[in-house]
Simulated assay, not measured.
Amino acid sequence: MNLLPENDLNKIWENFRLDGSTEALSLIYYEHFDFLYDFALKYTGDRSLIEDSIQNIFGYLLKRQKKLTPVSNLRYYLLQAFRRELFDQLKRQKKIHLSSEITENPELLCYNKIEDQMDSEERDRVIMLVKKSIAKLGPKQQEIINLRFNQDLDYNEIAKMLSISVDSCYQSVYRSIKFIKEDIEKALGDNQNLLLWVYIGLKKIKKN
Rank of each mutant, 00 (worst) to 15 (best):
P106R: 00
L78H: 00
L98A: 14
Y77W: 04
Q192L: 00
I134C: 05
F149C: 13
R125I: 14
L109M: 12
R92M: 12
Y174S: 08
E85G: 04
D88T: 12
I145K: 08
I102N: 04
R75E: 03
R75V: 03
Y155G: 09
Q89T: 03
D124L: 08
E182G: 04
I102D: 05
N105D: 12
A135T: 09
F87K: 05
K160F: 13
L78Y: 00
G189W: 03
A81P: 05
K131P: 08
N193R: 08
E157D: 13
F82I: 02
I127L: 07
D124H: 06
L78Q: 02
K94Y: 05
K140A: 09
L78A: 00
E185I: 03
L74H: 01
K178R: 15
D152M: 03
K132V: 04
M128Q: 15
N146W: 15
F149D: 07
L108M: 09
L162N: 11
L90I: 02
G138T: 03
R123N: 04
V130P: 05
N146D: 12
I158K: 10
P106E: 01
V173T: 13
N112V: 07
I102W: 05
E122K: 06
K136V: 08
L147H: 07
S165L: 07
K113P: 09
L90S: 08
S99I: 02
S120P: 11
Y170E: 12
I102A: 06
L74M: 05
V126T: 11
I158Q: 06
S172D: 10
M128N: 15
L90E: 06
K95S: 00
L153R: 12
N191H: 01
V126E: 06
E157I: 09
R84A: 12
D183L: 02
C169I: 04
K113R: 09
D183S: 03
Q93Y: 07
F179M: 00
A187M: 09
N191I: 02
P70V: 01
V166Q: 08
L129G: 02
V71Y: 10
Q141Y: 05
F149P: 14
K95L: 02
E143I: 10
D116S: 14
I114D: 07
